[in-house]
Amino acid sequence: MALNTPQITPTKKITVRAIGEELPRGDYQRCPQCDMLFSLPEINSHQSAYCPRCQAKIRDGRDWSLTRLAAMAFTMLLLMPFAWGEPLLHIWLLGIRIDANVMQGIWQMTKQGDAITGSMVFFCVIGAPLILVTSIAYLWFGNRLGMNLRPVLLMLERLKEWVMLDIYLVGIGVASIKVQDYAHIQAGVGLFSFVALVILTTVTLSHLNVEELWERFYPQRPATRRDEKLRVCLGCHFTGYPDQRGRCPRCHIPLRLRRRHSLQKCWAALLASIVLLLPANLLPISIIYLNGGRQEDTILSGIMSLASSNIAVAGIVFIASILVPFTKVIVMFTLLLSIHFKCQQGLRTRILLLRMVTWIGRWSMLDLFVISLTMSLINRDQILAFTMGPAAFYFGAAVILTILAVEWLDSRLLWDAHESGNARFDD
């Protein structure tokens, strides 16, 4: 018995066209964080690309023209004298008006014999932002004059995390709450300039795509075929072959399989920071003279006294001054041990922890910024005066060393310790 099946006739004509040209192939790229070699397709503007294995951002879609970056830099340069030299806060102490600005706080630190601690604050609040705007201006002028731009481009990517104007702005709020127990506070004209400078700096850093600047100024022929001998440069993120001198053909720094002496430098910085954190938390970090009496505060006791007036601000200072430094030390110690013992479990967790400490590390400088600003506000000789204690130097040095330890660690070593050939990683 035959089955009668109805015929289905399409209502619209289906047209099949042959592909007349070869589909576009992607360029081969190595991930600078996990060293995976993959094919990167062509990316349009405002599109980002991520590593298929570790999800690290390979290409950032946010990109401004150099002219727009230069305009932002010149605007920031105009704001800087007002943000640093004009009063941020006014207080009335014992019937006398006192003005506080950024430069005055750094000068008070240096004047009291601790120039190293003052230079830490100076670099993060004044030096690094000033280098940022002058570097962008150098790129703008240098591109037109045919100057060598490689050193500036190499420095810009590392400079971003040292620009800490946003953290200093939080420190202004913390210092205001600490001082309000002794005097009446009012915002100064410099505060508005400083807030504007923070906003412009944040926007500029978020749109400063150094890798795209490398592509514009020093374009290189990408690798179009897969080759395990391809290496990625950690300076400019170019994937290719080393030249005859073993250097990256684009930025001219040595092109090595792994960062040289990464573990040794990381261990040295980490152990030194552990040693410095002990006096930083045991010795007094601030000293207040009130009517001839002397009151010393460690980091913890200062947080407890701050909690009596504002528990939320005390929580912020606790996280930045105690929780973050010790968390960074514990995480980095764990990561280094996992590399030495070739741990194969929990790779995803370790990668996330490394990215976390990379982002939060700079916030530990908050305590030094609060001390710097408070020193310029309260300084009335023996009637009422505020000065920093010996722990300030140890704390600042420990924070900087932990930042350097994270920067010096080559994250690809975590993958080397893991089993080879993993296309995915999980716990």
Results as ranks from 00 to 15, higher is better:
2 A>C: 12
3 L>E: 11
16 V>H: 14
23 L>M: 11
24 P>K: 07
24 P>N: 11
25 R>V: 11
25 R>Y: 14
34 C>A: 00
41 P>F: 11
44 N>I: 12
52 P>K: 08
57 K>G: 10
58 I>W: 09
75 T>M: 10
80 M>F: 10
82 F>S: 06
82 F>R: 04
101 N>Y: 02
101 N>S: 09
102 V>P: 05
103 M>Q: 10
105 G>P: 12
107 W>G: 15
112 Q>H: 07
118 G>N: 02
118 G>S: 05
120 M>L: 04
128 A>W: 01
130 L>E: 02
131 I>A: 03
131 I>E: 00
132 L>M: 07
138 Y>R: 01
153 L>W: 02
162 W>T: 01
167 I>Q: 06
167 I>Y: 04
177 I>T: 05
178 K>C: 00
181 D>W: 01
181 D>Q: 03
184 H>V: 06
187 A>R: 13
188 G>M: 13
191 L>N: 04
191 L>K: 07
192 F>V: 08
195 V>K: 03
195 V>T: 10
198 V>R: 14
199 I>S: 14
200 L>W: 13
200 L>G: 09
201 T>A: 08
204 T>M: 10
207 H>I: 15
212 E>G: 15
212 E>A: 15
214 W>L: 12
216 R>P: 03
226 R>P: 08
229 K>S: 08
234 L>E: 09
236 C>H: 00
239 T>Q: 03
244 Q>L: 09
245 R>S: 07
251 C>L: 00
252 H>Y: 06
255 L>A: 15
266 C>F: 02
270 L>C: 13
275 V>I: 11
279 P>V: 11
281 N>C: 15
282 L>K: 11
288 I>G: 01
289 Y>A: 01
290 L>M: 09
291 N>Q: 06
297 D>G: 05
298 T>W: 04
299 I>A: 08
306 L>F: 07
308 S>R: 15
309 S>W: 09
314 A>I: 13
319 I>C: 15
321 S>P: 00
322 I>H: 03
322 I>Q: 07
339 I>W: 15
339 I>G: 12
340 H>L: 09
341 F>S: 07
347 L>K: 10
353 L>P: 09
353 L>D: 01
360 I>F: 09
361 G>P: 01
361 G>A: 08
361 G>M: 02
364 S>L: 00
369 F>K: 05
370 V>W: 00
374 T>L: 04
375 M>L: 10
376 S>W: 05
377 L>K: 00
379 N>F: 02
381 D>Y: 10
385 A>Y: 04
385 A>Q: 08
386 F>W: 03
390 P>C: 12
392 A>F: 03
396 G>V: 02
403 I>Q: 02
404 L>M: 14
410 D>L: 00
412 R>A: 01
414 L>D: 06
418 H>P: 09
419 E>H: 11
419 E>C: 15
422 N>W: 13
426 D>G: 15
426 D>L: 13
427 D>Q: 15
